[in-house]
Design a protein around this nucleic acid. Structure first.
Length: 211
DNA sequence: ACATTAAGTGATT
DNA sequence: AATCACTTAATGT
């Protein structure tokens, strides 16, 4: 996939013209299909992803191999954890999966430092990203420690709907359970409860949010 | 028709 | 809230 076919409009306003030129020259445009693994835990990072379109989900894994959803990354953003890894050349602490089809630009890591001194808009972009991610992370921690599972489930569903622009979600109870690091049975019961409260409608492989 | 996968249920910790 | 041990229902081959 050549860089020329990439639609830059989502990030156009973020960077100064000179930088945009350079991004166009050195960036590699990639399209990744829904469900694909982008970065796995332990992988070293050679490129910084700039997301043009789509949503990526960032998960953490515990010792027993259970996944826990940390947050989503949308267009015009980068994953701060990735940036983190780039800075000290360490291995990835997280796993990145495509929540939808994703279109992105890969920037070689070595340019990251250079651009920090060279372009003001790049600095702003990086700092803002760190800020955003830090906030997202705080939200994730809050949810984890202060919210009961049924509240977390509700948040989760809301966020899903926001990302897909469709209040009919195509997802299984098991998938939700692994995202929230819970068990399928519990999720099924909570969902049933929400259905009885009239908040949603359940089907096989689908959950329809009502309002 | 049979096997596989998703979802529902009661009991137990 | 989690786990077990089922059952039932929907789908794929």
């Amino acid at each position: 996939m050549s860089i020329q076919t990439a639609d830059f409009s989502p990030i156009k306003h973020l960077f100064e013209p000179n930088l945009l030129d350079e991004i166009q020259r050195v960036g590699i445009h990639k399209k990744v299909a829904k469900g694909e693994l982008m970065i796995d835990i332990g992988e070293s990072i050679k490129h910084i992803p700039l997301i043009l379109d789509g949503v990526i989900k960032i998960v953490r894994e515990d010792d027993s191999g259970d996944e826990l959803l940390l947050y989503f990354v949308e267009f015009g953003n980068t994953c701060a954890m990735t940036l983190n890894c780039c800075l000290d050349q360490s291995k990835s602490e997280i796993r990145a999966l495509c929540e939808s089809d994703v279109s992105l630009i890969m920037i070689p890591v070595n340019l990251m430092d250079l651009w920090l001194t060279k372009y003001k808009s790049w600095r702003t972009f990086i700092f803002e990203n760190f800020q955003n991610r830090l906030n997202e992370m705080l939200k994730a921690i809050d949810a984890l420690t202060f919210l009961k599972l049924d509240d977390r489930l509700r948040n989760y569903l809301e966020e899903k709907v926001k990302h897909t622009n469709d209040n009919k979600l195509h997802i299984t109870h098991l998938e939700i359970a692994t995202d929230l690091n819970s068990s399928r049975v519990v999720i099924s019961r909570l969902l049933k409860q929400l259905e009885n409260e009239g908040l949603l409608k359940l089907g096989r492989n689908t959950i329809s949010l009502l309002n």
